[in-house]
Design a protein around this nucleic acid. Structure first.
Lengths: 291, 291
DNA sequence: TTACGTTTGTATTTTTTGTTACAGAATTGC
DNA sequence: GCAATTCTGTAACAAAAAATACAAACGTAA
């Protein structure tokens, strides 16, 4: 038994009669769940009659519909691999969640969005969605991960996205090419890093539009930024929290994706195709390399 | 409708009667496929009678078994759909980066912590705080940024922290040295990456303790993990959200920092001194290279 | 156009499945 | 230790789903 009913169906598509093919395509469009419904529901969704479904299944070589479903479940099982939770014996215990830290995170998030000027977000999104501009992303010691994360997403929905990684000296190489048409997105929270500030100022001097995501105390980069999104970062811990930063980054990503959904969808599909065609495993763009 | 029947069942485990609990455990052990079989098969697999299954389902609040199955299928559907296929039903009109999205982020965060077994977090923290163990962090296409972020912090408060970056083939070099004394922290959300799963399994085979941070549908890595922290990731966007993942990562970081505050403080001071003495600007550990 | 084979849907039958009633077993409280 | 309550499985019942028979529709070739 080879593991791929989908493929078999797709391959044998022209063996079927006209209506049977309708059934097949409906199934492929919603695989495998449509096949796990009842015959009647399947038939209804495909716009054919029940017997057609049965004949379709029979032609695939199954003695009956239940056998067909058994096969679907079998394949699903392999795909999902049951999550064996060995600790479910643990009775729920105290609901806890009284975790002060967690509470603070939630509050930060709420506060952040409450005070975030919607207009600023929209403008920021439009800026990032404009494909005529090249986008550069820069983060600090800890926020570098966020710049990286945002770059990974933006790169999917648009071209011309660069994450500035590694040593400060390497950034300078990119600075040369930057101009008024470009955008620099900076993540910078306390303690503000001198190198970041320096770089942002240099970029601004070249006419680059700067967008800043920072904490409520505002990185000095704000002085030369066209767009500033202040975010709550304080938590009961020696560290500052990046959770709200991540949230804001995701709002921006979602915004850009939607701002030009046509383009986003096309690119996503193309990438998906590439991924499937080329190496199903894990290309993991090694990121930085785009220098 | 909150997206997590599994969680609800796990939480309400002690509301059930003895045999009903047997049914629940069987279902959790083989979720969600066992629930898609017939009542009789379900009952048989759980070693109870059919009516017990029906009573179990009824206690969960479903009017009948078919309705229960419909819910399972619904959740499965969301889990299986590629980002593109997921409905974009952004509440009409507004920017798409507006409040619906933000609200969902806040809700996700709250829900995540509500369902996170405090005990699991504590155990996870103790594991990570144990300096005799070497800690390896691994993430997927987007979650790599989180692994990186967590590594950057952990590295400050303890030694022996490795972030597995770049190509999958490079990870294997590290696999050689890993053993029962070590910990592998995996970030993996849908769509789960085959490479990650493979690596985690290989590590587990060598006796490595695996801790997993995943979405509520559970990466297959869960099967071989000692600690699993499920997190809410669904948002009204073609992407999944990493905000709650970031939050959980920060809870862990804060926990480890506090677990051995003496050591953490010392190391932080020492690092500060180094930073000031050597290069006040920005060393930005180029991360990966620590091998 | 007509005749024949194929394809398709309606209506019916048969089988399976979910559901419920009830009585025996286990547990709890007094 | 006994009674009341709760829990659990057997068995009968009702609902549904799958399978089938058959006739109408369609297409094709003479």
């Amino acid at each position: 038994m080879d593991q791929a009913l989908v493929e078999e169906i797709r391959e044998r598509l022209d063996e079927f009669t006209t209506t049977e093919r309708r059934a097949a395509q409906a199934l492929l469009a919603n695989f495998p769940l449509l096949g796990l419904q009842t015959v009647a529901q399947f038939a209804d969704a495909a716009g054919v009659s029940s017997p057609t479904i049965l004949r379709f299944v029979a032609r695939l070589g199954f003695p009956g519909f239940p056998e067909f479903q058994r096969r679907l479940k079998f394949e699903l099982e392999n795909q999902l691999k049951a999550p064996l939770a060995r600790d479910l014996a643990l009775p729920s215990g105290d609901t806890g969640c009284g975790n002060a830290f967690a509470d603070k995170l939630v509050e930060n998030l709420r506060e952040t969005f409450q005070h975030l000027p919607e207009r600023e977000i929209e403008a920021f999104v439009r800026l990032l969605a404009d494909e005529r501009r090249t986008v550069y992303l820069l983060g600090g010691r800890f926020t570098d991960a966020l710049a990286r994360y945002m770059a990974a997403h933006l790169r999917i929905v648009r071209s011309g996205v660069h994450h500035m990684a590694g040593q400060e000296s390497n950034w300078l190489d990119q600075l040369i090419g930057m101009g008024p048409k470009d955008v620099l997105v900076v993540f910078d929270i306390r303690r503000y890093q001198a190198g970041i500030v320096r770089f942002a100022e240099a970029a601004a001097k070249q006419g680059v539009t700067v967008g800043l995501i920072t904490d409520s105390w505002m990185s000095p980069v704000a002085r030369i930024s066209q767009h500033v999104l202040p975010v709550r970062v304080a938590v009961p811990s020696p560290w500052d929290s990046s959770t709200a930063l991540m949230a804001v980054a995701e709002v921006l990503i979602a915004g850009v994706t939607k701002e030009n959904w046509q383009r986003s969808e096309q690119r996503m599909q193309a990438l998906e195709a590439l991924r499937n065609g080329a190496d199903p495993v894990r290309p993991l763009e090694s990121d930085d390399g785009e220098a």
